[in-house]
């Protein structure tokens, strides 16, 4: 071995070492990510049942869409792609993702701008906004479920006292408000994360630029839109894509805050429900494969169109 190594250049030696350093991690990721993903896709092409994982047969794309022409000439479409419940979940997820990320970005920007200013008690504010982030999602779902409780909830009490509503609202149970409840909790919980990412971008902006603008008497709002925003655009783009991906796969908050509500059921929730609760394992697998495909397409488009540099290699 030693003589062999002697024949290799230093960089070749290092590359060989790098390979062995990477191998265990790659093996682990293959085992828990790539292989299960491939199996999920395979299951989506079969009629496997939860109770009999190995009894499934290959049925092609029937879980997605099957077209059968009856003798009478009637055509019957079946499968996820013609399932209204699935399209409802797609719509819920997309609506949730765009609305929540929009508000988180705007509010996150405001919080980040506040934290970027120098004032007494800044450390305290930063500590305070870390609290929603640190609270487990399930716990925040329960906390808010209690605050949003129709009979004894504090939110209804506050709104009644302020005269904003005439009667108590069943926030999480009512079809009209369930989505607002989910959005409220998600925005509350994730704005801090957004603010911290944006703040990191803001702190990269050299202070002299602001001072120069101030000396020239440029309006602060103009400074924000003409100087700050373009400079933090890369940080903002990365933050938004991370949040977007996270929002598109949301499961836990919806599952706990508004159980079984058709108004909030997302793609992840409906997939798991079919897979585990309804014993339509393969059908659920098909839905989760579709979710994966949607997210993959979305990310590729975003990176391609926005020319976002995620790897950080370009910064070197």
């Amino acid at each position: 071995m030693a003589t062999n190594d002697g024949g290799l250049s230093l960089s070749q030696q290092r590359q060989r070492a790098a390979f062995w350093f990477l191998a265990p991690m790659l093996a682990a990721l293959f085992f828990v990510a790539a292989w299960p993903l491939l199996r999920t896709i395979w299951f989506s092409l079969t009629n496997t049942l939860l109770s009999d994982l190995y009894g499934g047969e290959f049925i092609g794309f029937d879980n997605y869409l099957s077209i059968r022409v009856l003798e009478s000439g009637r055509v019957i479409y079946r499968g996820t792609l013609v399932d209204p419940a699935w399209w409802n979940a797609v719509w819920n997820t997309v609506r949730f993702a765009f609305v929540s990320v929009f508000f988180e970005t705007v509010l996150g920007l405001i919080v980040a701008l506040v934290l970027n200013a120098e004032f007494k008690g800044r450390g305290l504010v930063r500590a305070a906004i870390l609290i929603p982030w640190a609270i487990p999602t399930i716990v925040s779902a329960k906390m808010w479920a209690w605050m949003l409780n129709d009979q004894f909830g504090i939110i209804n009490d506050i709104l009644l006292n302020l005269g904003l509503i005439d009667q108590k609202i069943a926030w999480t149970a009512s079809v009209d408000t369930a989505m607002y409840a989910v959005l409220m909790v998600d925005i509350w919980k994730t704005t801090p994360f957004m603010a911290l990412l944006i703040l990191a971008g803001l702190q990269m902006v050299p202070r002299d630029i602001y001072e120069a603008a101030k000396l020239d008497g440029v309006n602060p709002i103009k400074v924000f839109f003409k100087i700050t925003l373009p400079l933090i655009r890369p940080a903002l783009a990365v933050a938004i894509i991370f949040r977007m991906l996270d929002a598109l796969r949301i499961f836990d908050l919806v599952y706990v805050l508004t159980p079984n509500s058709a108004a909030t059921k997302t793609m992840s929730v409906i997939s798991r429900e079919n897979m585990i609760d309804f014993d339509k394992f393969a059908y659920g697998a098909a839905q989760s494969t579709l979710l994966f495909a949607i997210i993959a397409i979305f990310v590729s488009l975003y990176i391609w169109l926005g020319k976002v540099d995620l790897s950080g290699e370009g910064q070197k």
Binding site: A33, P36, T40, L53, L245, R249, R272, F281, S288, S311
Partner: peptide
């Protein structure tokens, strides 16, 4: 260490962390 495909590998690792976990649920369950 500089090696060919490093950027791609980094992107793949990032992609895995951004995975919708539901997409591997059936396979992991098995």
């Amino acid at each position: 260490v500089r090696f060919r495909g490093r950027g791609l590998l980094l992107m793949m690792i990032l992609a895995v962390s951004m995975f919708p976990q539901i997409a591997v649920l059936a396979g992991l369950f098995e």
